[in-house]
Design a protein around this nucleic acid. Structure first.
Lengths: 137, 137
DNA sequence: GTTTATAACGTAATAACATTACATATACCC
DNA sequence: GGGTATATGTAATGTTATTACGTTATAAAC
């Protein structure tokens, strides 16, 4: 083995990750639970425990403004401490991107203010291009 | 009257705003409710309704990663669509700042991707200077 | 191969956060 | 007064997340 891959997921972690990977958008913990009942899941904690690890591994992100979770689709994301998300309030679509330059400026602030950064949440809410095109204002 | 001041708060809005203004940090809706029981508050919805308006007025911010609310302490904040927060996970202290340059870069992304931005959440988690000094790693 | 330690898992109960639904009140305009 | 819009009161419920406790799987140490 070379580096930080995670083929070593447990059964529950795999099930939760697969569920998120196959979803077209973010899922709440309880939505995941419902999907996985047929695989034997019975309680929220089974989902939350798996999610905790998957987030720790960098394979899943939590969307704070949605109380939901997405599989990371951002190539190389595990190398980043930060991801940013654009969330369409019309269709629910979520785009992940890497706000490197913006993050550098936020890091300037933390440096100037002696703040020891551990994680960053950046979430943009609005309308995606498709929805803006079909719902003109 | 000149401009966007809000001396015209309703009774409930005033009570909730005062509660948040006098607090040393963010409060959850239920913490506000408990504080305001002596003023006749009886149900969560009384708090949530007031908060909704106060956020709309730009007088209060919601911290998504905390499910809590803070009174805006940022001079001129009402002019900004965006505020950023540095949240100390040790002492709970929250610093608000105006991430103008970072926001400009995020706006570049939205422009390039046709995303119609309505609001932005930027929350930094970590340790404030005071806590980092007293809890060295 | 048994002991020991650690991480993962199962289940129930409960806590914490937020909304829906419906009835009433208040204020402002005509 | 009648009509409209906004604010309020209250109860019930829905949604999200955690605590507590006990068991099972895994792997290293002896």
């Amino acid at each position: 083995m070379t580096s930080g891959t995670h083929t070593d997921l447990t059964k529950n972690q795999s099930l939760v990750f697969t569920s998120l990977s196959e979803a077209s958008g973010p899922l709440t913990a309880y939505a995941i639970l419902d999907q996985l009942r047929e695989h034997g899941f019975r309680a929220p904690l089974q989902v939350y425990r798996a999610l905790e690890k998957l987030v720790e591994f960098g394979m899943v992100h939590r969307l704070e403004s949605l109380n939901a979770f997405v599989a990371c689709r951002h190539k190389g994301c595990a190398d980043h401490k930060t991801a940013a998300f654009a969330i369409c309030e019309n269709c629910g679509d979520v785009s992940e991107f890497s706000p490197d330059e913006a993050m550098a400026l936020l890091s300037d602030w933390t440096r100037e203010n002696g703040f020891q950064l551990s994680r960053t949440t950046i979430e943009l809410r609005g309308q995606c291009q498709d929805c803006a095109d079909s719902n003109p204002h």
